[in-house]
């Protein structure tokens, strides 16, 4: 029996309430329960978390580096999406 049969899981940890879950690593486990237990043992030994998500890596759909330009370049020339694009008189201090 090979270890590969234990699927790979991605681990996300919420470090404290009020913050989002963040990806922190991955591990192999036979099922979701074991993935959660192992994630707890490996990634939260020093109070790094208050909540854990585990997701089978195979379930993640990711964009490809080749698509980077197509996906993200269009945002580059849209300065009007940023507040500094709009020049207001000095008197308007905070807006």
């Amino acid at each position: 029996m090979i270890m590969n049969d234990w699927p790979l899981w991605e681990v996300f940890i919420r470090s404290r309430s009020g913050l989002e879950h963040r990806h922190c690593g991955s591990l192999h486990a036979a099922d979701a329960k074991m993935a959660l237990e192992n994630a707890r043992d490996v990634y939260t030994r020093r109070n790094e978390g208050v909540s854990i998500w585990v997701v089978p890596s195979a379930q993640i759909t990711a964009s490809q580096p080749e698509e980077q330009a197509e996906l993200f370049d269009p945002a580059a020339d849209k300065a009007y999406r940023h507040p500094t694009f709009y020049v207001l008189p000095e008197e308007v201090r905070h807006m």
Binding site: N4, G25, S26
Partner: peptide
């Protein structure tokens, strides 16, 4: 005990990093 457990964790972080390069945990072991 805590130190040795940490080292096991370090091994796991690093195996995971190696696996991202397209080699399986089994091959590594």
């Amino acid at each position: 005990l805590a130190k040795v457990q940490d080292e096991a964790g370090h091994g796991l972080y690093l195996y995971s990093a190696a696996e991202t390069l397209g080699i399986s945990r089994d091959e590594l072991l």
